[in-house]
């Protein structure tokens, strides 16, 4: 291992020399790897933002329990205790009819004059249940809703649970689609880099035969070619990041900022995307080149 590490500058030089001498093939491999990884990166960005969006909605999730007009103080107290004992519940806020009317006016904004002359009696009092961050699990909410719905003084409950369930389904679908497409694109990258290395190996078959003859180990023969694959993959990853970064900041963000509003900013992935794309490229390059070299050497002795 120490000898291998000592020889690594030699492996790197050989890999760079091969890339230089096979510039055409290397450029094609780098280009197609970059394009594949651009798609991969774009899919990651989509998945990241859908997840962030749904998480932000989930964080704002509330359960509202509407009370009957005749609900007694005792019933309210029993209900408050039952709700606070529920899993994941942080606090309960009581909203009386006047408070509900004020909120409605705020929500209507310039159209608040529609409510001119009305008092809050047409709005039922309610309990607003706020869940602890990170514990806004839908199963907790469903259990609590089922529990309180039959309690005396409760008229009905309301939550965005159905909507959130659908969104979670969308997230799962997006994740599945992203992983499936990522897998297929990865296969493409492995194939392209593997093929490029295969061509290099073919061009270097005499060198390899002589290396075998003089007693070079397989590891010593393999390493420059695997390094070449890793460089190709990592280079493609970095280029893909550069393109995505340019498109995101130069074109997409100015347009998207005006569409999504102030409460949600689309994320580009930052350093995680650089590491992810360069790492994925390097890993795929490693797999492609290692498979090619292994296959080539198997018939080489």
């Amino acid at each position: 291992m120490i000898r291998w590490l000592q020889c690594f500058p030699y492996f790197l030089r050989e890999a760079l020399k091969d890339l230089r001498e096979n510039a055409g093939g290397a450029a094609i491999a780098l280009g197609t790897t970059t394009i594949s990884l651009i798609f991969l990166g774009a899919l990651w960005i989509v998945q990241l933002n859908v997840t962030i969006l749904v998480e932000s909605w989930r964080e704002r999730f509330q359960l509202t329990i509407f009370l009957g007009v005749q609900a007694t103080a005792g019933q309210k107290e029993a209900l408050r205790k039952a709700v606070l004992a529920g899993a994941g519940v942080e606090r309960v806020e009581e909203v009386d009819s006047e408070e509900a009317l004020r909120e409605m006016k705020n929500w209507l904004g310039q159209d608040a004059d529609l409510l001119q002359g009305l008092d809050g009696s047409f709005l039922p009092p309610s309990f607003r249940v706020i869940f602890r961050p990170g514990q806004r699990d839908l199963s907790h909410v469903e259990r609590l809703m089922a529990q309180v719905r039959t309690m005396p003084g409760v008229e009905r409950t309301r939550s965005d649970i159905l909507w959130l369930r659908r969104l979670e389904g969308v997230i799962r679908f997006v994740a599945l689609a992203v992983w499936t497409l990522s897998f297929l694109l990865s296969l493409g990258v492995v194939f392209i880099i593997g093929n490029t290395i295969r061509l290099t190996l073919f061009a270097r078959r005499e060198d390899i035969a002589i290396m075998h003859l003089v007693g070079a180990t397989d590891l010593f023969i393999k390493t420059p070619y695997v390094t070449e694959g890793v460089l190709c993959g990592a280079g493609g990853g970095l280029l893909a990041f550069g393109v995505l970064w340019g498109v995101f900041h130069g074109l997409f963000q100015p347009i998207a900022g005006s569409v999504t509003g102030a409460d949600f900013a689309i994320q580009a992935g930052g350093w995680r995307l650089i590491l992810g794309l360069a790492g994925a490229g390097a890993a795929l390059g490693f797999i492609g080149s290692a498979v090619s070299v292994r296959h080539f050497l198997r018939g080489g002795r």
Binding site: C7, E206, D207, I210, M211, V214, F220
Partner: peptide, 24 residues
């Protein structure tokens, strides 16, 4: 002979030394 045409005389021999991990 099995010499590598794109390497010089020196490199043809030195290459074999590097291939078995002899320091430069």
């Amino acid at each position: 002979f099995k010499l590598l045409p794109r390497r010089t005389v020196f490199d043809n021999i030195a290459f074999c030394q590097r291939a078995i991990g002899v320091p430069a």
